[in-house]
Simulated assay, not measured.
Amino acid sequence: MYNYPNTEGYKTRHYLYLLTTIMSFLFLSHFTYAGTTKNIGTNIPVDDHYGLALEPAPTITYRFLPPAIGQQQIEQFIEQSPVLETIKQLSQRRFIFSPSLQIVFGSEDGPLFDPVTNSIHIPYQFVIEARKRFKNKAGINNQRELNQATEDTLLHTLLHEIGHAYILDRAIPILGKEEDSVDNFATILLLNDIARGDEIAMNSADLFALEDLDIDSFDDADFVSEHSLDLQRYYNILCLVYGSNPSRYQRIFDELPVSDRQQQKERCPEYFSVINQGWLHYLAE
């Protein structure tokens, strides 16, 4: 006689098998996604040791407003600049924004960060004026050097404004002037993450020194401004550059009197260490 299988036992085993399969799937899907993991608090996939590695999406976008007459070349200059690619790469691993941060080129006001619209505004005129200042600077000998100095200043300025956005996004406490803090933010990123970042920082510092040449005297408004004086910003950046590599920049303060020069050389390595550790504590990796 043909023995019929025990259907009740079969159903029980089948049910346990399906339940185990479903639970395993839910467990794995909770921790993996297409072979990648995700940054906590974002939807950015990052590399790991399994499956395909997906490139993280940039968390900064760009918008170019129509340029006025005479500004078309500056718009093209910015679009073709490697600065945009540098910011894109940093936005994938150093300052990750969710929702994304928009940079608008061609605004009337700025450079500035607008917290209401979560956007940074860079006028074309700002780049034009920076270019003019560098064109008259001693040591700029050809078009390539002029373009480089202008790009360097644009990069530092963008990082400065991104610093404002990052402080707001991460609710970072600031004890002192926020403008000084984001100058430091920009310079620390250059020194840690960007090829020839020290040169970029010094070129951007030079713009503050060039702007200072236009000042014949100070009034009360200069001392109550949210920004430090141009020369203070200039020497603060140089201090960070020197502190990052004292043996390389022994002559960076040669323009100062001997006593001031020595004071800076004694102070700046420790100053760089404090500022560097502070910002790296917050910056993503």
Rank of each mutant, 00 (worst) to 15 (best):
V83Y: 14
Q76W: 04
D47C: 10
T157W: 00
I128N: 03
Y33H: 11
S100Q: 14
S107M: 09
I96T: 14
G41K: 00
V104L: 11
K132V: 08
N43C: 10
D193W: 05
G110I: 07
I275P: 00
L190V: 05
I162Q: 00
N192I: 01
S273M: 12
I96H: 05
A209Q: 07
I215T: 15
E145F: 04
S217M: 08
I128C: 03
D169H: 13
A221R: 11
P173M: 06
V258M: 11
R196C: 03
Y62N: 01
P5K: 05
H227S: 03
L52R: 10
A186N: 01
Q76Y: 06
L18F: 05
A53E: 13
K135R: 10
K135W: 09
L19V: 08
L112I: 08
I69T: 09
L28M: 11
S107V: 06
D219Q: 12
L207M: 09
Q92I: 06
S204M: 00
R93K: 12
A130T: 07
N192P: 09
D220W: 11
G35M: 01
L159M: 07
L19E: 08
R131A: 00
L207G: 02
Q148F: 00
L240F: 06
D183P: 06
I60V: 05
L84F: 03
I188D: 00
A165G: 06
V241S: 02
A209G: 03
N245S: 13
P246S: 13
P173N: 12
R196Y: 14
L238H: 04
A57K: 10
E178D: 13
P99S: 13
V104W: 05
N6M: 07
L54F: 15
C239T: 02
L16N: 00
Q72V: 10
Y166D: 11
D193A: 09
L280A: 08
N192C: 09
I215F: 12
N276M: 07
L18K: 05
L90E: 03
V104E: 13
G51Q: 05
Q125G: 08
D206C: 03
N3G: 11
P269D: 10
I194D: 10
L191C: 06
T150K: 00
I103W: 08
F134N: 03
Y282S: 01
L65H: 07
Q143P: 02
L207T: 00
V83G: 07
F31A: 04
S181M: 15
Y10Q: 13
T61Q: 09
S181F: 09
F185M: 05
K177R: 15
E255H: 06
L159D: 12
L210D: 01
P45V: 12
F223E: 11
N276H: 15
I275N: 03
R93Q: 11
Q80H: 12
F64Q: 02
A209C: 02
D260M: 09
Y10V: 07
Q143L: 11
L84Y: 04
G197T: 15
H156N: 13
N3R: 14
F272W: 11
V116N: 14
G278Q: 13
S228G: 12
D48K: 06
E85C: 01
G243R: 04
A205W: 03
F218L: 05
Y33N: 08
R13I: 02
I237Q: 00
F27V: 08
Q263T: 14
F25Y: 10
F272D: 00
Q277T: 10
N6R: 06
R251Y: 06
A34V: 12
Q262I: 14
T37R: 12
N147C: 07
S24Q: 08
